[in-house]
Measured scan of single mutants.
Amino acid sequence: RKWEEIAERLREEFNINPEEAREAVEKAGGNEEEARRIVKKRL
């Protein structure tokens, strides 16, 4: 699934746990840019 690939990239890029990465992607509706913004806000 594409969402899992996005979550994996976010996890590696921001050094967050898989659960946090998945939550961000879900919140963003699968949009990678939006997920990235969500993760950055949390850091």
Score class of each variant (00 low, 15 high):
Arg1Gln: 13
Arg1His: 11
Arg1Ala: 13
Arg1Cys: 10
Arg1Val: 11
Lys2Gln: 12
Lys2Trp: 13
Lys2Asn: 13
Trp3Val: 05
Trp3Pro: 05
Trp3Asp: 05
Trp3Ile: 05
Glu4Pro: 05
Glu4Val: 07
Glu4Phe: 10
Glu4Leu: 10
Glu5Met: 07
Glu5Trp: 07
Glu5Asn: 05
Glu5Leu: 09
Glu5Val: 08
Ile6Thr: 04
Ile6Tyr: 03
Ile6Gly: 01
Ile6Arg: 02
Ile6Phe: 03
Ile6Pro: 01
Ile6Ala: 04
Ile6Glu: 03
Ile6Asp: 01
Ala7Thr: 07
Ala7Arg: 04
Ala7Gly: 03
Ala7Gln: 07
Ala7Phe: 05
Ala7Leu: 07
Glu8Met: 15
Glu8His: 09
Glu8Pro: 01
Glu8Tyr: 09
Glu8Leu: 15
Glu8Ala: 14
Glu8Lys: 14
Glu8Asn: 14
Glu8Gln: 15
Arg9Ile: 07
Arg9Phe: 04
Leu10Pro: 00
Leu10Ser: 00
Leu10Asn: 00
Leu10Tyr: 00
Leu10Glu: 00
Arg11Gly: 07
Arg11Val: 13
Arg11Ile: 14
Glu12Ala: 15
Glu13Tyr: 07
Glu13Thr: 05
Glu13Trp: 06
Glu13Gly: 03
Phe14Lys: 01
Phe14His: 03
Phe14Gln: 02
Phe14Arg: 01
Phe14Asp: 01
Phe14Met: 04
Phe14Ala: 02
Phe14Val: 01
Asn15Thr: 06
Ile16Tyr: 02
Ile16Thr: 03
Ile16Trp: 01
Asn17Pro: 13
Asn17Arg: 12
Asn17Thr: 15
Asn17Ser: 14
Asn17Asp: 12
Asn17Val: 07
Asn17Met: 10
Pro18Gly: 11
Pro18Gln: 13
Pro18Glu: 13
Pro18Ile: 14
Pro18Ser: 12
Pro18Ala: 13
Glu19Asn: 10
Glu19Gln: 13
Glu19Asp: 14
Glu19Pro: 04
Glu19Met: 11
Glu19Val: 09
Glu20Asp: 11
Glu20Arg: 03
Glu20Thr: 08
Glu20Gly: 04
Glu20Phe: 14
Glu20Leu: 14
Ala21Trp: 02
Ala21Ile: 05
Ala21Glu: 00
Ala21Ser: 06
Ala21Cys: 04
Ala21Arg: 00
Ala21Gln: 00
Arg22Met: 14
Arg22Asn: 08
Arg22Ile: 12
Arg22Tyr: 14
Arg22Phe: 12
Glu23Lys: 10
Glu23Arg: 10
Glu23Pro: 01
Glu23Cys: 05
Glu23Ala: 11
Ala24Arg: 01
Ala24Gln: 02
Ala24Met: 05
Ala24Trp: 03
Ala24Cys: 05
Val25Tyr: 03
Val25Phe: 03
Val25Glu: 00
Val25Lys: 00
Val25His: 00
Glu26Met: 13
Glu26Arg: 13
Glu26Ile: 12
Lys27Gly: 06
Lys27Arg: 12
Lys27Ile: 14
Lys27Thr: 11
Lys27Glu: 15
Lys27Asp: 11
Lys27Cys: 05
Ala28Gln: 02
Ala28Val: 03
Ala28Thr: 05
Ala28Gly: 05
Ala28Asp: 00
Gly29Arg: 14
Gly29Tyr: 11
Gly29Pro: 00
Gly30Glu: 02
Gly30Thr: 01
Gly30Trp: 03
Gly30His: 03
Gly30Phe: 04
Gly30Leu: 03
Gly30Tyr: 05
Asn31Ile: 09
Asn31Trp: 06
Asn31Thr: 03
Asn31Asp: 14
Asn31Ala: 05
Asn31Lys: 06
Asn31Arg: 07
Glu32Leu: 10
Glu32Tyr: 13
Glu32Thr: 04
Glu33Arg: 09
Glu34Lys: 09
Glu34Cys: 04
Glu34Trp: 07
Glu34Met: 12
Glu34Leu: 12
Ala35Pro: 00
Ala35Gln: 00
Ala35Trp: 00
Ala35His: 00
Arg36Gly: 03
Arg36Phe: 04
Arg36Cys: 04
Arg36Ile: 08
Arg37Ser: 09
Arg37Pro: 00
Arg37Val: 08
Arg37Leu: 10
Ile38Asp: 04
Ile38Gly: 03
Ile38Cys: 08
Val39Phe: 03
Val39Ser: 02
Val39Leu: 15
Val39Pro: 00
Lys40Ala: 14
Lys40Gln: 14
Lys41Trp: 06
Lys41Pro: 03
Lys41Met: 13
Lys41Thr: 10
Lys41Phe: 06
Arg42Trp: 15
Arg42Leu: 15
Leu43Ala: 06
Leu43Thr: 05
Leu43Gln: 08
Leu43Glu: 05
Leu43Phe: 11
Leu43Tyr: 08
